[in-house]
């Protein structure tokens, strides 16, 4: 029984070499942080506590959705630098819609339909923003880095122009439930993320579109000779990325009850870090949702741990950068020295 389990886990580790180290890393991080926090806070604050896990669970969904949005584009050897500014543009648009029509709808007893309409509209809008990225990349053949760099500035500019630099706040109570409500202690937002992650895993591993996406990322020429419609896959990828951004925007708006043009700009680095740490190859073709979820949990543990330890957010920013380079260095080392890995998986 135990032997079977060990053999199965070894086989899993071989098949998923890019994320085999993550479970150990997760356990290590949790142990290290709980001991460090126990010592420094002299037992007043516990890392392994219901409150802390609750706080972490609250932040996971939006970061996870944004990381998924980053990951799908990376699988095609692209990148989406506009995720944060798209999320802010969508968030601000939804906020303004609800503030403008909210009072009228409330007096007519139509608050709920308004919220549903706003959410649907917000998701459509974010898909459109993604489509625009996709069109620039697929039809105009602009490299993903520069295309999304351009839209990142454009979307942020539009948001600034709409808000005039102000924060838009005061969402209806019914909308705030998305972030604050829960079923049996599981927040709605976490359910949204879980469903999104499962659907994404299914699409990427089991649907033709998902497989085409990986093919495109591994070798675009080979994919196009294999009758993959490159332009269509790219368009769909960036629209999917936009949709995930839209979900994140809804959750962010609900959690902060406010939106502005420059919310969470430092998250861009974190989403890249989570995707790469989770085993996604920035050169395209490799990466799985499971790895991303593990990396997300690890990152969230470290973030909240450093926070509990009272470490400056700027130092954390520097650490994220160093960690990203560290992970890439480790990958590159492994790629050059395959060691005892079976030859069939050497890439």
């Amino acid at each position: 029984m135990l032997n079977n389990l060990l053999a199965a886990s070894r086989a899993w580790g071989k098949r998923n070499a890019e994320m085999a180290a993550l479970p150990f890393l997760l356990v290590g991080v949790v142990l290290l942080l709980s001991v460090a926090i126990e010592i420094t806070s002299e037992g007043n604050v516990h890392f392994l506590s219901v409150e802390n896990f609750g706080a972490m669970a609250a932040q996971i969904p939006e970061l996870g959705l944004l990381s998924l949005a980053m990951m799908v584009t990376m699988l095609t050897a692209g990148i989406n630098l506009s995720i944060i500014s798209s999320a802010n543009l969508v968030g601000v648009t939804m906020a303004i819609t609800m503030l403008t029509f909210g009072p009228g709808a409330a007096s007519a007893g139509l608050t709920l339909p308004l919220i549903v309409l706003t959410i649907v509209g917000g998701l459509l809008f974010s898909v459109l923003l993604g489509l625009f990225n996709g069109l620039l990349i697929a039809k105009l053949k602009i490299t993903p880095v520069l295309a999304t760099l351009g839209t990142m500035i454009l979307y942020e500019g539009l948001t600034l122009a709409i808000t005039k630099g102000y924060v838009i706040s005061g969402m209806p109570e019914e909308f705030l439930v998305i972030a604050s409500g829960d079923v049996f202690g599981v927040p709605y937002a976490l359910i949204v993320f879980t469903v999104a992650a499962v659907v994404m895993a299914y699409v990427l591993q089991r649907r033709p579109f998902g497989r085409q996406l990986y093919m495109l990322g591994s070798n675009q020429t080979a994919a196009s000779f294999s009758a993959v419609n490159i332009d269509r896959v790219i368009l769909k990828t960036y629209m999917l990325s936009g949709l995930l951004v839209g979900l994140a925007a809804i959750i962010m708006l609900s959690r902060f009850s406010s939106a502005n043009a420059r919310q969470g700009t430092s998250l861009l680095l974190v989403t890249v870090l989570i995707a790469v740490l989770g085993g996604t190859d920035p050169d395209g073709g490799f990466g799985k949702v499971l790895g991303l979820v593990m990396a997300l949990v690890i990152m969230q543990c470290i973030t909240s741990g450093l926070n509990l330890l009272g470490i400056s957010s700027f130092l954390t920013l520097g650490l994220w950068g160093a960690l990203l380079i560290g992970v890439i260095a480790y990958r590159s080392y492994r790629a050059k020295n395959p060691g005892n890995r079976p030859k069939s998986v050497s890439a």
Binding site: L269, L315, G318, G321, L324, I328, S332
Partner: peptide, 27 residues
Amino acid sequence: LLIHYLSAPPIIITIANLNIFFGLLQF
């Protein structure tokens, strides 16, 4: 050096370094 030896996309290395340089400086 990092871009060359790690053979990683320049955008990712330099986003990381932007945050390292800026974060450490601020800290």
